[in-house]
Design a protein around this nucleic acid. Structure first.
Length: 630
DNA sequence: TTAGGGTTAG
């Protein structure tokens, strides 16, 4: 068929036969069709035999706007004698591809066999990148040999990729040696990059101390080095370290930039350090750092995880644009705070705005339903996710649903779902159901689940504790003792419960019966006062929450020293009257702490916001925002 | 043509 009816503006004026104009046409070709037409034309006119033009066709097809590797490969295979540039282009394209980096190595070895071409400083980085991705250390070492033989060992790009190759393959000594050698000729820029890559490698291998040592020994650090430490620490949950590097950076006079803020905010969020989070937000505004959708989603998440959901919503509304992640942040935030209906409203607004929800957005929506007892809604949203959006539920989605059914007391259904879902249950989901069984006193299902949990978990202390708590709540002290003995034998420990509160920008952390705080004496006096006032207000300790076989008086004492109570006592003595207290706890709040905190909020006229492992509780004037549904 | 970034069930 003649193609005059599909002529594009690009081809309206046919190219002349001179190479430069074809090359410039290729460079501005926008659609795959433009490219294919130019390609066909080049072949028809014989211009494709010009290696420069052929190379440009290839480059246009695999890099930048087109990124069609299969098409690029066919272009390459048509070349009678690809030049070095073309080899490099295709090797790079494969090395950067998600599914076939290994093909880059195959091509590299084919290139070595060609008589007229030799790898150069542009070939090695891609080939080494491919080795790093597929952890091909032997190939990597051989390529290193070629690098030396051909004299590219001093090239900054080649060197960085060599170091990264060794680091990704876990050969840290080789990586370290290369970096040290490069430090002898301190061309700062390049040396800093090499050190950053080395640090990244140590983090990837979980060798955190080594990473820190390299960082501390760096004479010159760039802002990227600082940001890298902050983000890596935050990613592996070393939250305080992340924040301490952030502060040290400031002390040493290195200015925070956009990436610094985006990197440190998740750590602040998880710690619940509201004051610091507010400082970061103010810093962005004062320094004209644009709060775009990326920084915005980090801020929205920070405000909601730090207890200020209204501010989170406010920041969200002011963002210049929204994407699935900003929506996830605000929906997940509302869910955490138990504001299910608003979470659902936001979800509807998102759909109305034409944004396609991701599976993460649905985790937020389902979590909202779970924490508000909206069972029918939860089911229908899972259905919507599968049928309308074609998303496959992950274990997290089933986790929300099992939790939702369990909290609502629909334990048989929860168990049925857990046993029949198409993904393998993990210890998280078993524990969620086990916690519901304990709460609703269902020993039968609890035992089923416990048995299955024990089959697959051997070193998760929390699972054993949950099981022992289930027995304890049923008064089955014999089995409690058995589980505890087993824990001792297997040497598994549970996460110690701890709570923390930020006062004047400093985080104060407490564990159960904690006497280590410098103001410990005042804190315990306050705890005594609190207990007296609670008793005056008619509070009776709920000793069923103490899951040890000890006498009642001791049980009361054990409750009295729960870490969240200590944190609240400290908050009360170290802030002025009326100040809202923000407490974060790493486990779920216990029933006794929940009911006494309600009273404390009334007695002392304080709003107390507690974030526990699963959600927020806003205590105010004797009531909690969770409506006892947690 | 090399280094750093946001959301995710309990």
């Amino acid at each position: 068929m003649h193609n005059s009816n599909i002529s594009t503006p690009l081809l309206a004026s046919p190219p002349t036969s001179s190479s430069p104009s074809v090359i410039s046409l290729l460079k501005i070709s926008k659609t795959p069709r433009d490219l294919r037409q130019l390609h066909a034309l080049a072949i028809k006119t014989g211009l494709f035999r010009d290696p420069l033009i052929a190379a440009e066709v290839l480059r246009s097809s695999v890099l930048f706007k087109h990124r069609d590797l299969r098409y690029g490969r066919s272009v390459f295979d048509q070349m009678p004698e690809p030049n070095c540039f073309s080899w490099n282009t295709l090797i790079r394209a494969y090395a950067e591809s998600d599914d076939s980096p290994f093909e880059a190595l195959v091509l590299f070895s084919r290139m070595l066999l060609c008589e007229n071409t030799q790898p150069n400083q542009f070939t090695f980085p891609s080939a080494l990148k491919a080795c790093a991705l597929v952890e091909a250390i032997e190939a990597g070492k051989q390529i290193h040999g070629h690098v030396i033989k051909l004299g590219w060992g001093g090239d900054a790009f080649v060197l960085t990729n060599l170091v990264r190759m060794y680091a990704f393959c876990g050969f840290m000594e080789d990586a370290q040696k290369l970096v040290e050698k490069s430090s002898l000729f301190p061309d700062n820029e390049a040396s800093i990059v090499l050190h950053n890559i080395l640090i990244d490698g140590y983090f990837r291998l979980g060798m955190v101390e080594h990473a820190r040592k390299v960082f501390d020994r760096m004479e010159n650090k760039s802002v990227v080095s600082w940001n890298g430490m902050i983000s890596k620490y935050a990613q592996i949950g070393y939250l305080k370290e992340a924040i301490s590097v952030f502060r040290q950076m400031q002390l040493e006079g290195v200015k925070h930039n956009y990436v610094t803020l985006v990197s440190v905010l998740p750590a602040i969020a998880r710690l619940g350090a509201l004051e610091l989070g507010e400082w970061v937000h103010a810093y962005a505004e004062k320094n004209n750092i644009e709060v775009d959708d990326v920084l915005g989603s980090a801020l929205v998440d920070m405000y909601s995880k730090c207890g200020n959901i209204d501010k989170a919503v406010q920041v969200f509304e002011k963002l210049p644009k929204h994407n699935p992640i900003t929506w996830s942040s605000v929906i997940g935030g509302l869910a955490m705070h138990g504001r299910a209906n608003e979470a659902i409203d936001y979800f509807r607004r998102m759909e109305k705005d034409g944004v396609t929800p991701t599976d993460v957005v649905f985790i937020g929506v389902l979590n909202a339903c779970s924490h508000a007892g909206l069972v029918a809604e939860g089911r229908s949203y899972l259905d919507r996710m599968v049928k309308l959006y074609g998303l496959s539920p992950r274990i997290e989605h089933y986790g929300c649903l099992v939790d939702m059914l369990g909290r609502a007391g629909l334990l048989e259904e929860a168990e049925e779902l857990l046993l029949n879902m198409p993904v393998k249950p993990d210890h998280v989901i078993y524990k969620a159901l086990l916690a519901s069984c304990k709460r609703h006193g269902n020993a039968k299902i609890g035992m089923h689940i416990a048995n299955r949990l024990m089959e697959q978990v051997s070193d998760d202390g929390d699972s054993y504790v949950l099981l022992s708590n289930l027995f304890a709540s049923l008064g089955d002290w014999g089995n409690v003792a058995k589980v505890r003995l087993l824990m001792k034998k297997l040497d598994v420990r549970k996460d110690p419960g701890c709570s923390w509160i930020t006062v004047n920008g400093k985080i104060h952390e407490f564990v159960v019966e904690d006497y280590s705080h410098p103001q410990s004496k005042e804190i315990y006096l306050m705890l005594e006062e609190m207990t007296d006032k609670l008793q005056e207000a008619g509070y009776v300790p709920d000793t069923t929450q103490v899951l040890l076989n000890i006498d009642e008086e001791k049980k009361e004492m054990a409750l009295f020293y729960h870490s969240e109570k200590i944190a609240i006592a400290f908050g009360l003595i170290s802030t002025s009257p009326g100040t809202t207290l923000h407490v974060v706890k790493n486990l779920r709040i216990c029933g006794d702490c929940h009911s006494s905190t309600k009273l404390i909020s009334k007695i002392y006229g304080r709003k107390i916001i507690v974030r526990d492992r699963s959600r927020f509780h806003h205590f105010d004037n004797g009531v909690c925002s969770c409506n006892e549904y947690w």
